[in-house]
Design a protein around this nucleic acid. Structure first.
Length: 490
RNA sequence: CGGGAUGUAGCUUAGUCCGGUUAAAGUGCGCGUCUGGGGGGCGCGAGAUCGGAGGUUCGAAUCCUCUCAUCCCGACCA
């Protein structure tokens, strides 16, 4: 086990925190609830961004940027929306500081009070729809498919690095459509994009579904989500996509003339994923030896560590390593040759293992003599001596293998920890154990809340393409048409 | 905002109950040296006005008062 890292089995949340801090991904800042994302962590986020951005563009979206500050009056235009966010908004009330008269520093200048307070965006629906009103007049202006990469602020009481922070980074897509069906199609399409990203790139299996009314986004008619299962048996919502109906169009008076010249409100969607995905990535794959990053998101996929006793050996190894590095780079593989003389090989091994680099190559004098390298893979911790012959091709294939192995492992874990409850007693013990639990539910918010009260478990989603099966609610015994997915959640 | 706790070196902490030389350790940092195939050994060194203010005392990290800050548990949550 890695030094200074808690074991998952003993203290899961300590383990998570240790990984984030010791793998140098992020740290708490002096600003309560806010984090500093360090270079190692930000590099992974950039890989995620790059891929998602490409997928958004491939599905016809364009990036734009809207203001950080939202006039208070905008936020209050959609009733359900403001209700959902009111309790966690940061508010700007003044625009100037001045020197304190007693010389103790600066104070807020009471003369610089804003006419109307500005809200630091918790999400941007309102300010964006205020613009859309000006942009949309005709069916020819539709669909409008916009995404923005931004930071948002939600004043959380209890925060955890990446999983819940007061300020976080995300993307938010906001689209406008001429028809209801098209908007629903868009929300579903983006959910598919998220699911594909999660499974193909993060190697994290997810369940696609819709939220119950209780769990729905403030202002949405339907909230779609992808839910993932973490190693401690708790669920994590990894992405959401909302069908907003005409709620925002009505609140901001966004109408368009259709082909017949008749005015109608436009139909809307919004969808987002955040730096919370970093938390999901960490908790899906990592082990008691540290972080594990799937190759497709690893900023460094291969690291080469030289082992030597003198300058002569170092020079010979460096020449070989540089050559190998070029060959790997030619195949689009990101490589780091760690030629620092300030750290020893053993130290470097531990370091890269902890930081989750998928493949490590060690080259020493013995290897050079035999035309071999020592190859260690992070996912299985296996080490083997392999010939330099065709090494780049072997590594290329191995990276693909590691990627698929991580997904398979996570998928197996998810399957092994998915259960079906037959009655409430059964349900309680399954939930206590952790994992996804399918159970019949009578469809009422009241029952949902009572179950939450008794067990702390919530309905994560009603899976898409769910099997219809008649049954009776585990709590009330009332008729139910299908089982829904319960779990304790982050 | 209710309940509980803690502030001592960059970090983690001991010392506080029961006041007494120059405030201790691990880790990290710097230098030297032996080293180098899994976080290495040895030696030397820098680094703390003990959260802040006031008080009690011959003497305060330690006792008292006030103050500031942070953390944990609850209500809320991408």
């Amino acid at each position: 086990m890695a030094k200074g890292l808690a074991k998952r089995s003993e203290n899961y949340s300590q383990w998570y925190n240790d990984i984030v801090v010791k793998a140098d991904l992020a740290e708490n800042s002096d600003v309560r609830g806010c984090m500093v994302i360090k270079p190692s962590g930000y590099a992974i986020w950039e890989k995620m961004q790059q891929q998602l951005d490409k997928m958004f563009k491939d599905t016809g979206h364009q990036n734009a940027y809207f203001p950080l500050f939202i006039p208070k009056s905008y936020l209050s235009k959609e009733a359900a929306h403001v209700k959902g966010f009111a309790k966690e908004c940061a508010v700007v009330t003044h625009y100037r500081l001045k020197n304190a008269e007693d010389g103790s520093g600066v104070v807020v200048d009471p003369d610089a009070k804003l006419e109307e307070e500005l809200i630091v965006r918790p999400t941007s629906e309102t300010i964006i729809w205020n613009s859309y009103k000006k942009w949309i007049q005709s069916y020819r202006d539709l669909p409008l498919l916009i995404n923005q990469w931004a930071n948002v602020v939600r004043w959380e009481m209890r925060t955890r690095l990446f999983l819940r922070t007061a300020e976080f980074l995300w993307q938010e897509g906001h689209t406008a459509h001429a028809s209801k069906d098209e908007a629903i199609g868009e929300a579903e399409k983006m959910l598919d994009v998220y699911a594909e990203f999660a499974e193909e790139y993060m190697a994290m299996p997810v369940i696609k579904g819709v939220k119950t009314e209780e769990e729905r986004f403030a202002g949405a008619l339907e909230t779609y989500c992808i839910e993932a299962l973490m190693q401690d048996g708790k669920a994590l919502q990894a992405g959401t996509s909302h069908f907003l109906g005409q709620n925002f169009a009505k609140a901001f008076d966004v109408k368009f003339a259709n082909k017949e010249g008749v005015l109608d409100y436009v139909w809307a969607t919004s969808w987002g994923v955040s730096t919370r995905l970093m938390g999901a990535l960490i908790m899906t794959h990592s082990d008691d030896n540290g972080l594990i990053i799937p190759p497709k998101l690893a900023p460094t996929q291969v690291v080469i560590v030289p082992i030597y006793r003198n300058d002569e050996q170092f020079d010979a190894i460096s020449a070989k390593a540089e050559e190998l590095k070029k060959e790997l780079q030619a195949k689009g593989i990101s490589v780091k040759f760690d030629n620092r003389d300030t750290h020893k090989p053993g130290w470097k091994f531990a370091e890269y293992e902890f930081k989750g680099v998928p493949i490590r190559l060690a080259i020493g004098p013995r290897d050079l003599e035999n035309n071999e390298v020592e190859l260690a893979r992070r996912d299985t911790l296996e080490k083997e001596q392999i010939s330099m012959m065709d090494l780049p091709t072997k590594i290329e294939h191995l990276l693909e293998q590691i990627q698929s192995n991580l997904f398979t492992k996570a998928k197996t874990f998810q399957e092994d920890n998915t259960f079906h409850a037959s009655d409430f007693k059964d349900f309680k013990s399954l939930i206590k154990k952790g994992g996804f639990v399918y159970a019949h539910w009578d469809g009422t918010a009241e029952t949902e809340n009572r179950i939450k009260e008794y067990t702390k478990a919530t309905i994560r989603c009603i899976p898409l393409n769910n099997k219809r099966e008649d049954g009776s609610c585990i709590l009330t015994g009332n008729p139910s048409l299908q089982k829904v997915l319960f779990a304790k959640a982050y």
